[in-house]
Design a protein around this nucleic acid. Structure first.
Lengths: 147, 147
DNA sequence: TATCTTAAAAGTCAGAGAAAGTCAAAAAAA
DNA sequence: TTTTTTTGACTTTCTCTGACTTTTAAGATA
């Protein structure tokens, strides 16, 4: 088995505790596997690409490290599913319920929640009942698509 | 964890009582962390830059000290100023200009820009001309208040 | 009082050290 | 042969250190 595969597996195992971000030190890892440090870069660039669901950050210098984050597209799938299930109209109450669901599932952060809420609130729209819920549905769905 | 990060955190914790300016003594702090005094300068110059929302002043000589102020009210002031200058109506064109100004002054990030844009776009609002620009102004201003 | 002196701060800057990144050539595998 | 993996020399970025400089307050002296 090639060393790259072993390192790949080792890194993936670090996620086993359920965390969605892990941190490694390039030189330390290279020493552990008895390979040159740049081998770690190779593994990362071939096996932890965004298209494979990972996002990588790093810092050089003393105490430097490499952070690998798992990005899941569960989020996008969930949002698309919700959007499809919102009809042509949406009440302020329904918005509140959706937003609180999104927050508890960590689909959006509190800032996005505030923006969604304010952009679709009765006070801001100030429209007749029949127009209001239609406009609200359109704004809400389109904003969601951009989150 | 690197010593610079520890010192950074220590200083930031000093703001926890809500004050927007804190005062430290360079030598004292260096002694506390068992590092050379210039390390404090390093931390300040890399972690407390104006671009990071801090403003630093100091005095030498007996009883000298370093004062760190939290600023970044610039952003809020600017936003408030803009909001006050937006009337009751706002065209799609005006939105585009404002958003591109905000972006170039780093008042908002690209995600916020997209949300502002989509929530106020003609296609989404789909209202008669007289209503549209009024609703757009309200949505835009209220969203800005929450950025 | 006015000035001079000294000590107590903070500031600067360049060099050393500690990481990670790059890239192309060699080697191995498909 | 073509593609993937491995290697290592060189680069870049970030952190830490210490010698030296500058500024200022406070005390000493005329």
């Amino acid at each position: 088995m090639r060393i790259s595969d072993v390192i790949e597996e080792f890194i993936k195992d670090l996620f086993d505790d359920g965390s969605d971000a892990i941190e490694i030190q390039r030189n330390e890892l290279a020493e552990h596997f008895n390979c040159v440090p740049s081998q770690i870069n190779y593994v990362i660039s071939t096996r932890f690409k965004p298209s494979q669901g990972y996002y990588v950050e790093s810092r050089r210098g003393g105490g430097g490290h490499i952070t690998i984050k798992k990005v899941n597209n569960d989020k996008e799938d969930y949002i698309m599913h919700i959007i499809k299930n919102i009809g042509n109209e949406l009440t302020s109450n329904e918005v509140d319920i959706l937003i609180s669901d999104f927050l508890s599932y960590n689909i959006i952060d509190t800032k996005e929640a505030k923006l969604l809420k304010v952009a679709t609130s009765d006070n801001v729209l100030k429209l007749s009942k029949d127009l209001k819920d239609k406009v609200r549905a359109r704004i809400f769905k389109n904003m969601l698509l951009n989150i």
